[in-house]
Amino acid sequence: MKKKVVVGMSGGVDSSVAAYLLKEEGYDVIGVTMQIWQDEHEAEVEENGGCCGLSAVDDARRVAQFLDIPYYVMNFKQDFKDRVMSYFVEEYLHGRTPNPCIACNRYVKWESLLKRSMDIGADYIATGHYAQITKLTNGRYAICNSVTAAKDQTYALYNLTQYQLAHTLMPVGAYVKDEIRQIAKNLGMPVAHKPDSQEICFIPDNDYAAFIDREADGCVPGEGNFVSVTGEVIGRHKGITHYTIGQRKGLNLSMGHPVFVTQIRPETNEVVIGESEDVFSKELICNQINYMGMEDLTAPRKVTAKIRYAHQGAPCLIEKVGEDEVRCTFDEPVRAITPGQAVVFYEDNYVLGGGTIVK
């Protein structure tokens, strides 16, 4: 009997080719687009190449017809609002810089979609992520680097559970992006030339602060003081939601040389400004730990850690300092460790685990 797989189809080339590859492998493939945020205006339908709006539904439906597979749209708007959009706003209001894609992956694209897929008799869900899943010699499942470092998406998947990984397929991880596009072109797939989406899907204009102002309903702290690392007031800022650690542009401070955001203090509504060297640090503390390639951290361990999506990774020592707290000490200082972002631990190209940076 054929195994049934629900493919999360975003309307992009990666998930479309994932559906094709799984059908070719003999799976019983069902295409599903997750409707997860507000409806788009007509102009946004034309302009937005994102993964979540009405244009995505239209493109995914055309691909499903092209592949001759069943296709459904599932409404996860409330889950997305509760677990992603509200979290995004709350984190910025507390002076942190969140990663909404990580929350969406864990709690919506996997938790909600997997449950509904299993309810309709599916064996697996599948996505178009550039990552691979392997079962390690210790019996645990882990996310592995894809064959293409340029598109690697393991960082945003560190928070998946063992159950989720056991019921997930990622066929695109065995290919480089050019190969995926070529497959789509060779087939004459409708989305073969569709550009990749870059922005956060629910903020297509990239104006985070304006989005937070609308969503927070008057709770956004207003202007406050820029202060130096020694506490001297050196100017006025537009509101803490406009800034993130390491930021240089858009500060409008006449200091005579480049300066950077080194800290955000929501309790006093201050943004701390320092020199380039003040943005570097050798240590961080993280919590909300998700162990993936290992069951627990029982002794200090040398790993490679990434502190943001585009970070190349750096060698460090991780050690448990509380029941749900890990300290990460880097061999060399790293730039712009940012509270609210994830730190992900790697060993031999697979994900050991990760957590949310606290400080």
Rank of each mutant, 00 (worst) to 15 (best):
R83A: 08
N252K: 15
N99S: 10
G50C: 01
A103I: 02
C328Q: 10
F260Q: 02
F211N: 00
V351M: 07
K109D: 01
D82H: 03
G31Q: 10
G12Q: 12
H242E: 11
Y175G: 03
R181A: 02
A156Y: 02
F66D: 11
N206K: 11
Y27M: 13
T154W: 15
K135I: 11
R248H: 15
E295T: 13
C51M: 06
I120W: 06
S117G: 09
V57C: 06
D213E: 15
H193D: 14
T298L: 06
P339M: 12
N159I: 11
K109H: 01
L93M: 14
I318F: 14
I183G: 04
C52F: 00
D59M: 09
Y87R: 09
E44V: 06
T268I: 10
M118C: 06
T154K: 15
E47M: 04
Y309S: 03
G31Y: 08
S228Q: 00
A43K: 14
G139F: 06
G49V: 11
C104V: 01
M255T: 09
V89A: 09
Y309E: 07
V303S: 09
D123H: 08
S86P: 03
N269H: 09
L21I: 15
L317R: 15
Y208M: 01
V32K: 01
S197A: 08
S117L: 05
E270Q: 13
A126M: 02
E40R: 01
S117M: 04
E325L: 11
Q35P: 00
K135G: 08
V279C: 03
T148L: 02
V147T: 13
